[in-house]
Design a protein around this nucleic acid. Structure first.
Lengths: 332, 332
DNA sequence: GTGAAAGCGCTAACAT
DNA sequence: ATGTTAGCGCTTTCAC
């Protein structure tokens, strides 16, 4: 069995409160007693029970990071930023997966108040849940949607301008036939990246061709499949001159499919992605893409959570700007 | 304030126990009462408090995955395997970072019993802590060391044979001057990979050259720096013909350094890694490496945890075999 | 079918 | 400086 402060109290012939104070190094307790308690604790292999303390103190000192795909390629730097801030505030951090809907760990931890603050980057978590949970005083920072409600703050990437930059770069190279490889169509990021794409075309007087809306769902595989299909369906004369993918993973899948179809990237078709994941600089041709400061994003989001712990930060919204990173895949 | 069952009980003019039973859909309670309670719960935006339940039930139904580097490139598939098994057992999963020693979330969660089982892949967690924590009935699976103690089970990669395969492949290609790019020298993985390297040389009658032990620490940067230095110090005549890196990240760093030094991989120097991370197939030249079934590893480790939840599995040890994946970087 | 009460392990206000 | 006590929100035994 686990030893509790009760056991220590018994053995030491002290009250539990005294033991508790001693273990928490309270100034009320004499050095002698403290020493005795601490020794006994070590002897009995005592470990405080976090659950009990959390219940009593009505807080967990833990921040939850809720991701759609724990271990996905996007998050590594972001997590570092989050970690930096949580640990410098002497809080704990747990990363939870949100895939699986209402049965996911994300739902459980959010609803059951097993964290004191939440950072959400998981489109699969519904707006309703977030709003409901945040209503119960849970400071929540959402990175993947715009949401105005109590105890919710938005930290967003400037998707529209980012996409605009990507597409404008292509048009500046004289390319006009630019396809859009879409992510999940209902996602916030995708919607805005699509907006930026259309705006860039419009500003150049290029009319948007619904025909060049290619549907994927943010995964590498979806990009690969979508382009494979495209190559089967279209005559080569009817192919776009460039593909702007709503994220890097799809762009990488697309490049793979193009190469397998003996289409040269960027000579025949240029490809531009979004996010600047690690892989982007490693693949050949290296991927032109839109980068955003992930580490900073993580730090900022987490700082906001701690701000929300102190005061109600509802309604705050921060937008992070993006940068075009030109590499080989666009030929420019 | 958060609503509790007490609030519901009051409003419904019922006992808290009745409310609790009703919410847990106990057969004792009349449908009418259940309906009333559930409606009221919804109305008051009631959410059960997980901490309280965990305390009462003396379990969290949560498995902890403790990693040295949350978001590192290695773990993605492993995490999926772990997730698969935890969720099929209707448990939750939290991933915790172990960097930062005794102040890390890993230490806190392990010591405070905030998880019911642990999967550890974090050399920075000390053997002592693991043994101590496991003594308190915490089923623990370690993936990064051999450890025999109560409630601990080992799931290991066959590092020695893996390294042996890698180096043997090089010697079969007629390469004899093979350098070893080492990971953290005190790590279990590194020690055994080094053993396999030496054994493969020995079996071919090639004597081990301490001179070709190059020190890194498993990071891409450490591999890059180590090889940069090597190129500065050695005359080109004195360079090895191949580098066997203790993991892929260092191998990738090494390739980068070699290419910057105008040394052709694999023509001038072959490079082989270990782990078969995602990146390995994307870089150019693609990386020859030793793969192991990460998803399976995650599944297996997690299944072991659940086994340990039922019965004491102490002393069990499983070793996973590896495969050589030949790609471009070794020229074979 | 419902209620009263004990208790999980801890903290903290209030005695002494 | 130490002890007594109440209680965090929940589950569960036992009584009615």
């Amino acid at each position: 069995m686990m030893t509790t402060i009760k056991d220590i109290a018994q053995k030491a012939d002290l009250a539990v409160s005294t033991v508790s104070y001693a273990l928490n190094d309270s100034s009320k307790i004499s050095d002698k007693t403290k020493k005795k308690v601490i020794e006994l604790a070590k002897e009995l292999n005592y470990q405080p029970n976090g659950t009990a303390r959390n219940l009593k103190k009505q807080k967990t000192e833990t921040i939850g990071l809720f991701l759609n795909d724990l271990g996905g390629p996007y998050y590594s730097e972001l997590i570092k930023g989050v970690q930096e801030v949580t640990s410098s505030n002497e809080y704990d951090l747990v990363a939870c997966d949100a895939a699986g809907g209402v049965d996911s760990t994300a739902y459980t931890f959010l609803k059951e108040k097993r964290v004191d603050g939440a950072i959400i980057l998981a489109p699969s978590i519904s707006d309703e849940l977030i709003i409901q949970v945040a209503k119960n005083q849970l400071p929540t920072v959402v990175l993947d949607r715009e949401l105005e409600s109590e105890h919710i703050c938005n930290v967003l990437i400037d998707n529209i301008k980012g996409a605009y930059k990507a597409v404008s770069h292509l048009t500046k190279l004289g390319i006009e036939k630019i396809a859009y490889l879409s992510g999940a169509t209902d996602s916030y990021d995708n919607k805005n990246r699509f907006k930026g794409y259309k705006k860039a075309l419009l500003d150049k007087g290029i009319s948007y061709q619904p025909d060049w809306f290619i549907e994927g769902c943010f995964t590498e595989e979806s990009g690969y499949k979508a382009i494979k299909e495209l190559l089967v369906n279209k005559k080569s004369a009817n192919l776009p001159e460039a593909i702007f993918a709503a994220n890097d993973e799809m762009a990488i899948g697309a490049i793979q499919a193009l190469q397998e179809g003996n289409i040269k990237v960027p000579d025949d078709i240029a490809v531009v992605g979004f996010d600047d994941i690690n892989l982007a600089s490693y693949i050949r041709p290296s991927l032109t893409t839109i980068s955003h400061p992930k580490y900073q994003l993580g730090k900022l989001a987490t700082q906001m959570v701690f701000e929300g712990l102190e005061e109600n930060f509802a309604g705050k919204s921060i937008t992070i700007s993006t940068d075009l990173v030109v590499r080989e895949s666009c030929g420019g």
